[in-house]
Write a protein that binds this DNA or RNA. Structure first.
Length: 366
DNA sequence: TGTCCACGTCT
DNA sequence: AAGACGTGGAC
């Protein structure tokens, strides 16, 4: 049995040493860069992460730099990457390391696991890659590879299968090259042992793989059911006063936490009844509406719901000369900022089309 | 078009 | 412990 895993590691490393992907976080490695890259790589593909990682490390080169940055700047660097609580957790983690560990990344497993946003997977990745500890990082790739090698038929979400996989992973991990082992499995899962139509003919582990010999590796691991997504209707109302636009920061938790948005009214409205529908939510005070311009309809699909959006660009004039101050939204506070300033604020991809329309429209004023 | 990836972490 | 949490690309 021991020989079986030795043989597996030899085959894996022979292939890895020839075909290893050259990725930005694999050169000049340290715990901080490993941490940042692994957080970005959660639920996100390598191709997407590369430019974000390079910019992020340039902007926040050290734990201390990240800890002392403003939250908006960190979210701005994350804009478009999704799962925004990863960004705030990362910064909270940096602040935690500064206060609890003098800014030095801890090397003990129990200390690493206390860092906000760091769970078993990222802890194992950092321990193995940055500190040379034999901890298997159990991610979707390793689960898929192991499920296929041993033709594990159970659903990968079941606790029994999870325990099986953890036991096998601890036997598979290389004591001598634990970080390379984890990276080799990730490369294998991303390029060869893919979820659909895997390339078994080029796989270094093909000779050991039961699923490949059965001829249907794509059946593993067992699939989970998919729920149908609920749709939510919104009317997106960017409000322009001169070249300033009304924006507000979303709540600190929940969907798109901490990002900026325009006035969003639940439901869909025609141009005609937009005013009356805004009234209950928005106090215009001394302002009058100069014009309402329809913006394109759009749809945005999240992991668990869909936004169905209509949009209107609303231009205001004021009856006095005091400017936009009197305008206030009930219960929440937003602010008017110069339209160009939106470029430095984090916006969700969902409403990017409306932000761009506002920018184009504000530019037309000059 | 719609489905899947996407076990990762937090609540 | 089950559901929340984005996005983009492959097919």
């Amino acid at each position: 049995m021991t020989y079986y895993y030795e043989e597996m590691r030899r085959l894996l490393f022979d292939h890895y040493d020839l075909h290893r992907r050259d990725l930005p976080w694999r050169s000049d490695r340290n715990a901080y860069k490993t941490w940042v890259s692994e957080v970005m790589l959660q639920q996100t593909r390598v191709h997407t992460v590369i430019p974000y990682f390079c910019r992020f490390i340039q902007q926040f080169p050290t734990i201390s730099a990240l800890a002392h940055a403003s939250e908006d700047n960190v979210l701005k660097a994350w804009e478009g990457l999704g799962y925004y609580s990863r960004a705030t957790n990362l910064q909270n983690g940096a602040r935690y390391i500064v206060s609890e560990h003098q800014g030095i990344f801890p090397f003990r497993k129990e200390d690493i696991l206390k860092i906000p946003g760091v769970g078993p997977y990222i802890a194992a990745a950092i321990l193995s890659m940055a500190f040379g500890k034999p901890e298997p990082s159990i991610d979707g790739n390793l689960i898929r590879v192991i499920s296929r090698l041993h033709a594990l038929s159970g659903l990968s979400s079941s606790s029994k299968t999870q325990k099986q996989i953890a036991v096998i992973a601890s036997k598979m991990i290389s004591e001598k090259r634990p970080g390379d082992f984890n990276e080799a499995v990730m490369d294998l899962g991303a390029t060869i042992c893919t979820p659909k139509s895997p390339s078994c003919e080029t796989c270094p582990l093909e000779s050991l793989c039961i699923a490949a010999h059965e001829g249907c590796p794509e059946l593993y691991p067992g699939n989970k059911k998919t729920a149908s997504l609920q749709r939510y209707a919104f009317t997106i109302c960017p409000i322009l006063y001169g070249n300033t636009v009304y924006v507000k920061k979303r709540a600190a938790s929940g969907l798109l936490a901490g990002l900026y948005e325009f006035l969003m009214i639940p439901g869909h409205y025609d141009k005609e009844d937009l005013i009356t529908s805004i009234k209950p939510e928005f106090v215009l005070n001394d302002a009058s509406i100069l014009s309402i311009e329809a913006l394109p309809d759009s749809e945005h699909r999240f992991s668990h719901l869909i936004w169905d959006m209509k949009g209107y660009l609303i231009r205001l004039v004021y009856d006095n000369d005091l400017g936009p101050k009197p305008l206030s939204e009930k219960n929440t506070k937003g602010l008017f900022v110069p339209a160009e300033e939106m470029k430095s604020l984090p916006f969700p991809t969902a409403i990017r089309v409306y932000r761009d329309a506002v920018l184009a429209s504000a530019r037309d004023l000059f």
